[in-house]
């Protein structure tokens, strides 16, 4: 899995900042941003995750002409062997357990990134609240238009045996 082209765009940054309720003008106001230490609009710290928009195979985005597992007439658009919760069982891909970012440089509109994704460790654990948990790690390296490493991200996903008890 990889992303060949993740153009960092001002309107995407603005919409992302709004969605995390961050009113900081450095995320949308060029004139304000020019007077800050970075000197230009930058992206919020977790913005790189929205590279999903540019991943052609991202499985949590409905795709034109393909079945989608969310509800329509029925509660799910795809009948599948559900392993129960966590959106596991083929559809939801489990839950997000951990996320880590290392910033080598802060990204700005105009950057055009690529992302390479490598699998990391996998491990299992028993939990009282959700049965057997299967963890898997991925490491994503974001590089800019000059091939420089800008962000290293490490994500851990977990599949649960059943929905997490509340």
């Amino acid at each position: 899995m990889s992303i060949d082209r993740f153009p960092v765009e001002a309107s995407h940054i603005m919409m992302f900042a709004r969605s995390v309720a961050d009113a900081n003008p450095i995320y949308y106001d060029e004139e304000y941003a020019a007077g800050t230490e970075p000197g230009k609009i930058i992206a919020p710290p977790t913005f790189a995750q929205s590279s999903a928009q540019f991943d052609p195979d991202y499985f949590l985005r409905p795709k034109i002409g393909e079945p989608w597992f969310g509800s329509g007439k029925e509660a799910t658009g795809i009948k599948r062997d559900s392993s129960g919760g966590g959106g596991g069982g083929g559809g939801g891909g489990g839950l997000h357990a951990e996320q880590h970012f290392e910033y080598h440089r802060h990204i700005s509109p105009g950057d055009v990134l690529t992302a390479t994704v490598k699998p990391g460790k996998t491990w299992e654990r028993e939990s009282k609240r959700a049965g057997k948990l299967t963890f898997s790690e991925t490491i994503t390296e974001y590089r800019d238009q000059n091939g420089e490493l800008v962000i290293t991200a490490r994500g851990v996903g977990v599949r649960t045996e059943r929905p997490v008890d509340q």
Partner: peptide, 14 residues
């Protein structure tokens, strides 16, 4: 904004 359309976050029925 993020592109994560997992129905677990928006689709109460599912």
């Amino acid at each position: 904004a993020s592109g994560d359309y997992n129905p677990l976050h928006t689709d109460e029925i599912f």
